[in-house]
């Protein structure tokens, strides 16, 4: 029944573990990603959510092998990507594309829009003539809502939202089957974010690619995700279908994240779980459950034994010894905004 396009098995990445002469070898190691396993189904959108430094961007790059893993395996349609030779990996990139966070930095400043969008087409020899290339670029620009007449302009002349559209056009140019989007809207103005989220949602429906959508904000992915994974200090602490994660989160960190975001509603001030302290440095991940230093429901065992991800409801997994449903209180339809 399930048809995973991406399978991730015990994936890990430790930075600074290479050759080093210093004695403080252990202390320098940063475990950015640690023992992550999950699957992404065909045409599914998995949202990966977590605070800064939780390793979500690293995980996204590991899947596309923009950085090499130090442990575990990634499979794309039964091909193991993690040990593929560089040349074969490059061929695989036709199916695996990425949309970047920074719409200002991710477009080469000295190249025209047409050159940027056509680059993947050229790499994989998908266009034969200059005319065909321009036609294809014009078509792609129309699909992302840009006027093809701007084809020969340079990125600096466009606004953030327009640049992100260009980045999306580049990613869908080769018709990939899997796209990683790393915080694609967090650098954009509020009124433009919705445009880009809707655009990506529609393109995904239309083209059927699978999607890993990385964000730091649970609200942003609510409309686009099928399933949500929550990361804390390099580990996935909860993963499950959207409805359950938003309605019945089981891990105390997910619950805190959901309640911490200030809602644009003056009648719901200050009703939130406030976590103590800061996120610990990934150089010194706490023993046992890495969340136990801030957890409101911790007990003695949490500092000793690391809880595994276990099924707490159909399709929903949480890594907590004391996982229990925690319905997020929601007033009935507070939406009174006239159209």
């Amino acid at each position: 029944m399930t048809d995973p396009i991406i399978r991730v098995n015990d994936l890990g990445k430790t930075f600074g573990s290479g050759m080093r002469l210093s004695l403080a070898k252990q202390a320098d190691e940063v475990r950015a990603v640690d023992g992550c396993s999950f699957e992404i189904n065909r045409s599914e959108t998995l949202a990966l959510v977590g605070e800064s430094g939780c390793g979500k961007s690293t995980l996204g790059r590991l899947l596309l092998r923009l950085i090499d893993a130090t442990a575990g395996k990634v499979y794309f349609e039964n091909t193991e990507l993690t040990d593929l030779p560089a040349a074969r990996m490059r061929d695989m990139r036709r199916h695996l594309q990425m949309i970047f966070q920074d719409p200002y930095g991710s477009l080469s400043p000295r190249r025209t829009i047409a050159q940027i969008i056509a680059e993947p087409l050229d790499v994989f020899g998908l266009v034969r003539s200059g005319r065909q290339r321009r036609e294809r670029v014009a078509d792609l620009m129309t699909q992302v809502g840009l006027s093809p007449s701007f084809m020969d302009r340079h990125p600096r002349q466009f606004s953030g939202g327009q640049r992100q559209r260009i980045g999306i056009a580049r990613a869908i140019a080769v018709d990939p089957s899997f796209i990683v989007a790393d915080e694609p809207v967090s650098a954009l103005d509020v009124s433009v974010q919705a445009q880009i989220i809707n655009l990506m949602q529609d393109l995904q429906k239309q083209k059927g690619f699978s999607f890993l959508f990385i964000a730091h904000d649970l609200a942003v992915v609510r409309h686009i995700a099928d399933r949500v994974a929550v990361m804390y200090l390099g580990r996935i602490v909860e993963i499950g279908p959207k409805k359950q994660i938003y309605g019945m989160p089981q891990h105390p960190y997910t619950q805190a994240l959901l309640s911490a975001a200030p809602e644009p509603d003056p009648d719901r001030k200050g009703k939130r779980i406030i976590l103590e302290g800061d996120v610990p440095s990934p150089k010194r991940v706490p023993s046992g459950c890495s969340f136990h230093t801030r957890c409101p429901i911790r007990q003695d065992i949490c500092g000793i034994e690391r809880p595994p991800l276990r099924e707490v409801a159909p399709g929903q997994l949480a890594a907590c010894h004391f996982a229990k449903p925690f319905p997020i209180p929601r007033p009935t339809s507070s939406q009174a905004v006239p159209a």
Partner: peptide, 15 residues
């Protein structure tokens, strides 16, 4: 147009 945690709209309104 702002995404909210508590609404089940399929699409966001966009300006």
């Amino acid at each position: 147009s702002i995404p909210r945690l508590d609404d089940d709209r399929d699409r966001l309104y966009q300006i």
